[in-house]
Each structure stands twice: as C-alpha cells, then as structure tokens.
C-alpha cells in the first residue's frame, strides 16, 4: 500500500550537515549550522547599526525594530523577572534572545530548513554561559554566603535539611543548565523531525498516486505545523531568555 513506500531518510541526513569550508579541520569545519550562527551575529548587527543612524527623536525604519526588541526585553523579561537593577544585564539577555530566535526561525526559512538549535552545540554554549553568569552574580553579590543560602534555604525546619539540601544543590547547580539546554534542544529537534515526517509523507503519497487530492490530509498538516513551528520558535526564544533572567534574578535576591 501507500505506506509501504514511505522512505524516511536516515537520521544523520536530517540532522548532520557536511562542512563546506575548512572541510578537513576537526575544529574549524564550517557547515550550515555554523553559517546560521554567523547570520545570528550579522543580521542583528546590521539592523542595530542602521537603526542607530541619525537623531532618534522620532523612530523610523530599522530603529523601530531595534527599539521594539530592546523594549520587549526590558519590559517583559527584565522588569518581570529581575526588577530595576537588572538593566545592566540587558546586553546579555538581548544577545540570548536574538541568538536563540535566529537559531530557531531558520527551521521554516526555505534555504536553511534546519534550526541551528536542533544541534546540541548552540543550546549547550548558551546554557553554560547562563549558568556561569548566575553563579558569578551570586558570588559577587553575596560572597561565599551565596552557596550557603542555596544549599540551606531559610525557613526550613532543621531536620528537613537532610532531605532538602541535596535536592537543592543538585537542582540549582546541576539540573538547571541541563534542563535549560535540553528544553530548547528537544523542542527544536522534535519540531524539525515533525516537519520532515510530514514532508516525507507528502512526497510518498504523491509518489504513489498522480492525483493532488491525495494530499488532502498531509499538505494542510504540513502548512499548519509550519505555522505552529514559527510560534514555537518565538516562544522558546522567550522562555530561554526569561529563564536565564529568572536564574540571574534569583542569584541577585535569593530571599524567596
């Protein structure tokens, strides 16, 4: 039957990409994923540089986009998660947001069709940066007392410390970076495999019959899931950034 002709490509073809520059180096091999990361650097730079030209009293054009992003990060992420003294973390959080967003949105852009965050490299680097950042913020603001406050949260009856302390230490210092990275990675990988599955189904169904009507279930599904993946890209960028902000805010004011 039709389903017998579905040939799902081997997973390496869907996820791994061959290098097209520096092919023979193990460290410097430049593939599509590295190209997407490069564009995540270049596009925001160009938009912000074009936007900062001229007098800014009435924003127009690129300045509107740049100010929209800055205002979004300021009101929805910094004010919501850290408060007023979080303004100095705006460059870091804006970089997180834009890097993750461009890594996610290429899933639906025709030439790329691959989210850079479906490979563990990007999420790992970002999660490790957020982890290092919140630990350093905690240590700088509270000294070594920060570790004591995390391991022995106030307001817990003394006997329960035996149970609570290992859970707290594991949860804050080991599980947090892991879940931070895996959330983004698994969302993007799942979305990518879903879109690939629907595309393969569309091709197989059309290959088995020449009528277009057989696409009635698969093609609308593909379109709907593409739209859904645009939403998921935005939401995952927002969630990654606001979680990083929550971790930093928790290190700044640990009383909770």
């Amino acid at each position: 039957m039709i389903l017998g002709a579905v040939h799902f490509p081997p997973i390496e073809d869907v996820i791994e990409w061959p290098a097209f520059l520096f092919k023979d180096s193990d460290l410097l091999a430049f593939n599509k994923i590295a190209l997407i990361h490069f564009l995540s650097l270049v596009i925001p730079t160009i938009v912000f540089l074009v936007g900062s030209r001229g007098d800014g009293l009435v924003p127009r054009g690129a300045r509107t986009v740049a100010e929209g992003v800055v205002n979004f990060v300021d009101t929805q992420i910094i004010q919501a998660a850290i408060g007023h003294d979080g303004r100095k973390y705006m460059p870091l959080l804006t970089s997180f947001f834009l890097f993750v967003f461009f890594g996610n949105i290429t899933e639906v852009i025709p030439f790329f069709q691959m989210p850079a965050n479906a490979r563990m490299a990007g999420p790992l680097v970002l999660a490790l940066t957020a982890w290092a950042m919140f630990i350093s913020v905690g240590l700088r603001h509270h000294g070594l007392g920060y570790l004591k406050e995390v391991a022995f949260p106030p307001g817990v009856p003394k006997a329960l410390y035996l149970l609570v302390t290992p859970i707290e230490i594991l949860s804050t210092f080991f599980v947090r970076p892991f879940s931070h990275a895996v959330r983004l990675f698994a969302n993007m990988l799942a979305g990518h495999i879903l879109l690939v599955t629907f595309s393969v189904l569309c091709i197989s169904v059309w290959g088995a019959s020449a009528l277009i009507i057989v696409e009635i279930g698969t093609f609308p599904g593909l379109v709907a899931f593409t739209a859904f993946e645009v939403g998921v890209s935005l939401i995952q960028a927002f969630v990654f950034t606001i979680l990083a902000a929550v971790y930093i805010g928790g290190a700044l004011h640990p009383a909770h």
Binding site: V182, R183, F185, A186, A190, I235, Q236, L243
Partner: peptide, 12 residues
C-alpha cells in the same frame, strides 16, 4: 515551558 521540558526529555 517548564512542564513541557519533562515531556521533551522523554523525547530525547
């Protein structure tokens, strides 16, 4: 996002 992370660890 928090809750979905657990389902996605299962996906991994």
């Amino acid at each position: 996002a928090f809750t979905e992370a657990l389902a996605l660890i299962g996906f991994v």
